[in-house]
Nucleic acid binder design. Structure first.
Lengths: 153, 153
DNA sequence: TATTGTTATACTCTATAACTATA
DNA sequence: TATAGTTATAGAGTATAACAATA
């Protein structure tokens, strides 16, 4: 009798995700970063002027939880808050944030290579398409809409 | 400028997993079950005589965390503990556990169908192989070894 | 009237250390 | 000597409700 869970996409998704996450966090530990920190830094670099709550929507982190999260990155001197109007603040990388992100990027690349390396070569090209499809058909569209604001949808 | 995270398998894995998990938990809510409960029930049914700590190894749950987890299922009358020797106890479904599992299985199947349904038909056959590969190349072997006990590897 | 940032809070999940009793 | 179950505890991550200030 074999494990009945091993044929369930949902179960495999959870186990694969949790294993990959633990591995990435271990790889990032020497930089004193967690996976979410890197995601935030990458996002801040790619989307200059991105607002704190907009970043939360993209990353799937609630406004309330963004406060201590961003505070922590700011206290480490990796991120800066710039007032956009009197209630919104844009997130920007500091020079030190950009330098650390450069190193983090190499760690992430190695991690990605390790992940892909576990997949039979013939299946590698479909990994990202499959995961993208599994994460809602309309994940990309959702993100775009959310960044513009829920009322703009 | 587009989201640089959307090309990262690790990121997509995490988002897809978290979305799927939330969806499954919502589907299971009417049965007052969480995803891990169902995994435990399915495992107990498939592997009669499975020990509590062996179940923890299969599910990736630490011994310490198995205690309140199993206790909860036992208090609900879904699971029973049978003493194997004076330190090990096998987990068995009760009649009520088997009945609830039957309903849970239908929910899981619907969830699986929804997940797969988001994937373009041509890619569906590779979903499970891709996820299995991403969850370590040797996940299956690992589980087998862990069930027999670490010293038996 | 809706949104931003914020505080406070609670709940789930996970991780570690230590203990006992047994194999 | 290693393992099973247990207790206690701490840390993430996440969720909700509410509030003031602002758009």
């Amino acid at each position: 009798m074999q494990d009945p869970l091993l044929n369930l996409a949902g179960y495999l998704l959870r186990r694969a995700s949790s294993a990959a996450l633990a591995e990435l966090n271990a790889r990032l530990a020497p930089l004193d970063l967690r996976h979410a920190d890197v995601a935030m830094l990458m996002l801040a670099e790619a989307w200059p002027g991105l607002t704190q709550s907009a970043a939360g929507r993209v990353l799937g982190i609630q406004r309330a939880n963004m406060v201590p999260f961003v505070e922590h990155l700011e206290r480490r001197g990796l991120l800066r808050r710039r007032q956009v109007d009197r209630r919104s603040q844009a997130l920007e990388l500091t020079r030190s944030g950009r330098m650390l992100l450069k190193r983090a990027r190499r760690v992430v690349s190695a991690h990605e290579a390790a992940l892909l390396g576990r997949v039979p070569p013939g299946l590698r090209p479909v990994v990202v398409p499959v995961l993208t499809a599994l994460w809602q058909g309309g994940a990309l569209r959702d993100v775009q809409r959310r960044v513009r604001g829920p009322s703009a949808g």
